[in-house]
Design a protein around this nucleic acid. Structure first.
Lengths: 229, 229
DNA sequence: GCACTGGCCTGACATTTGTCAAGCCCATGT
DNA sequence: ACATGGGCTTGACAAATGTCAGGCCAGTGC
């Protein structure tokens, strides 16, 4: 692995505080791989052989059941995914596929568990990472259960606006088909939802969203830090 | 705190492996409290002052938004809840109320964080607990997004059957109103869902469920270890 | 026994969401 | 410019789910 990536990974909260020695142990068995778009790199149900780190590109985590499929989240650089399965040595609960050309580090789960047992700093960092992921998922679940689909879209747009820097015009960063799945609806319903949001201050054309009445949108969406932050 | 409870808590996976000294630090500031039924003991949004341990009774974790409320999970003895918020020193994302008379240990979050910093064994136990909770929540989310309400009920019944020892007749352990909320539907819809399950081998009267055609139910429910175990 | 209560069920209806088929739009390659 | 294909949109319809009002039933207290 090139030295530049080495040091980039070292800066991640997960690895920042651990000893050089243990970091070396983790990196020794790791390798970087570049995947083309739309490649499945992890399949749910398989043993969790690697902890993954997304260096560039983006990865979709999704799950399937009974011929159905749903998008759970999108992982962007620089962060890790499926750390819970690695630590517990349990099967993956989600599959992962690249959305675009992506560079991904694979760290053997066995090494993660070994170092986790030996390095208290690393163990603490893992806890922080897990606790954050857990809380994110609680928020996602609240979003799903407490809000109707139109409200979920409205709040998604507000979150996306923040991520994009706060301007009142910005791009959706994912394809609508995937957004629909992420929000728990069909593409057709999403299309109609966008139409309905015109009554609440939002217009859209293609992947471009314009908030022409911020106040109306916020009044409708009722964003809440315990769900949306 | 009585010695008997002390040693009961000590046996929990979370505290089993830590040093006596650090366990004492945790217990020193803790106290046991008995709550009557239907008392709110934690409110979402508040700072997380305590890690909670349910010794007896049961506690419902739920969340609210915009006048709506949804049941997230039920905590039964002996286990902890809201550990992620305690560790991160972040506000509670869920509220908690007793379902019945319950004995609950309150461990100051500050002590949890202090000991967490000092005791690698404890830190590891926290990771295991968090990873397990995280994976449970992933399963819950998959259940919600991939299954229709009738399918969720069917699988809930199969899980409950397992919990009850596998007999083909058993009690629902919670009131139907709460079950409906937990499954993400209205009480009326739940009532109709039970009716519809008669076509798939399940009958019910009051809180008592009878599976009269196990095979039919399983064929309809398609239980899956990556969601239901 | 009897009234009362809360939890649950039922029916009628409204709303939301999904399904299927067709069409549009835009980017791409020839 | 033209044909092609994918992604998105639209319309018509069906199915699922929620809402509201009323009724039933078992447990409780008088």
């Amino acid at each position: 692995m090139p030295e530049s990536e080495h040091s980039e990974i070292r800066k991640l909260p997960l690895f920042r505080d651990m000893s050089d020695e243990n970091f070396e142990i983790l990196m020794r068995g790791s390798y970087v791989q570049t995947f083309p778009p739309l490649v499945e790199i992890v399949s749910e149900g398989e043993p969790s052989d690697f902890l993954h780190i997304v260096l560039s590109g983006s990865v979709s985590l999704y799950a399937t059941w009974n011929e159905r499929e749903t998008s759970m989240t999108t992982v962007r650089p620089v962060s890790t995914f499926i750390i819970a399965a690695s630590i517990k040595d349990a099967p993956y609960l989600m599959s992962a596929e690249t959305l675009e050309k992506s560079r991904i580090v694979l760290v053997p789960s066995q090494d993660v568990r070994t170092v986790f047992e030996q390095d208290p700093q690393f163990a603490r960092a893992v806890v922080t990472e897990l606790a954050e992921n857990y809380r994110l998922l609680v928020k996602t679940t609240k979003n799903l259960k407490l809000r109707a689909s139109l409200e979920r879209l409205a709040n998604y747009i507000l979150r996306q606006q923040k991520r994009a820097g706060g301007a009142n015009e910005f791009d959706l960063s994912i394809r609508k088909r995937r957004l629909a799945s992420f929000l728990g609806m069909t593409p057709e319903s999403l299309s109609r939802a966008f139409k309905n949001l015109r009554d609440h201050g939002v217009s859209s054309k293609g992947g471009r969203v314009t908030i022409f009445d911020q106040q109306a949108l916020e009044e409708f969406a009722h964003p809440n830090p315990l769900i949306d932050d």
